[in-house]
Structures are given as structure tokens and as C-alpha cells.
Amino acid sequence: MRFLLIEDNAELAGSVIERLSLDGHAVDHASSLAEADVCAVRDAYDLILLDIHLPDGDGRHFLARQRSAALQTPVIVLTARSAVSDRVSLLDAGADDYITKPVDFAELGARCRAVLRRHGRGGDTLTLGDLVLDPDRAAVRIGSESIALRNRELRVLQVLARTPDRVFSKAQLHDLVFGVLEAVSDNAIEVYVGRVRKAIAASRYVRIETVRGVGYRLVRLDAG
């Protein structure tokens, strides 16, 4: 997915970009409305993340311009204002969703996915040999058989499958799947990996390998 992040705080911007990249997205960064106008006009983005308080103006004006130009890119607003009345007005102004600062990255990821799904730009299906990962339907298809997955199981598989052969430590998997605040034990991570293994057991093309002392990775088996 291609994202546009419009945020003037360099530190926050850096973290968001880093996090979204780990999820496999490409992120462009604008640090003012002026820059944003230049980027957004191409409408080549799947999602725009907009900070409502920018040095050169209120993000609402950007929103208004987007809507009046009938641009369909969904927008998620980043705001420090927490009052219900402020948030209601954001949605009225044309935002698809909003997230409050301090930003919880797990929540950010979840909201991005939800908004994209609503706009029919849901997660691209990921195909690896006989395995098709369908995030919109929260399912995995192996051949003609479809296996439902819970959200977290799906996330584990997504993380591993996006970069096959790359090893993820339990800690890394933890952060990417469960978010920072959950104190999920190593045990629980093992359990999740176990469930995913079971789900994709029928595949003759991929499997999840335990790299002892390091972590897990998805490997492609040679066909045949």
C-alpha cells in the first residue's frame, strides 16, 4: 500500500514511517500543508494520514479541498484534541477515522486496515505457491480449501509471509502482532505460531520453520 503521511513533528513522523514500513507499506512524508497539496494532487495514495494541527494551517482546509476536488482517498486524522465534540466535527469535515496522540501504533495499524477494508482497498491478497492469504476475509486458502483465521493468527502469518526467509525473533513478532502494551509471554507466542502452523499444514509450498535460539521464519519448499 502507498501511504501519505502529513505530519510536522519529525520524530513522530519517523516512528510512524518506520512502523508502517515494517508492515510492508510505502510511505511518503509531507511536513506541511503546502507540501501535502503538491503530493496529494496525484491521488496515487491508498490512504492519507493527516495531522490536523500543522504549522501552516488547519488540516481541515486540506480535507475540504480533498472533498471538493472529489478525491476519494480515505483520510485518517491524527489529533491531540480529545473532546468528543472535536472528534465529531472531524468526521463531519470529511475524515474517515481519527486517532489521538499519543499514537498507539497497534491501534494505528488496526484503523488503517479497517478504513482500507471499508474502501475496498483491503489488504492485497498474498500468494505464495498454493497458499493465498486473504486479509479481507481473514482466511487462508490452500488450493480450494479455505481456513478461517483469528485476527492475531492472521497477523502472525502476514508478518512472516511478507518477507519469506527472513527470521523474526519472538520479541519482534510480539511487537508487530500484539502491540507494545500487551505483556504476552513467549509461551503465548509459541502457541500462536503453533496454531498458524496447523492452519497452513496442508500447504505443500510453504511452512514455518523454527530457527533455534533466534526465532521463526516462513520458508518456501521446493515444489515437487
Binding site: 491501534e107 488496526a110 486496515r113 479497517a114 485476527n151 492475531r152 500487551e182
Partner: peptide, 8 residues
């Protein structure tokens, strides 16, 4: 919902 879904 998105936040809840994170933890199924």
C-alpha cells in the same frame, strides 16, 4: 471495533 479486533 478496530482496537478490539487487535485482540480478537
Amino acid at each position: 471495533r478496530p482496537v478490539a479486533e487487535l485482540r480478537d
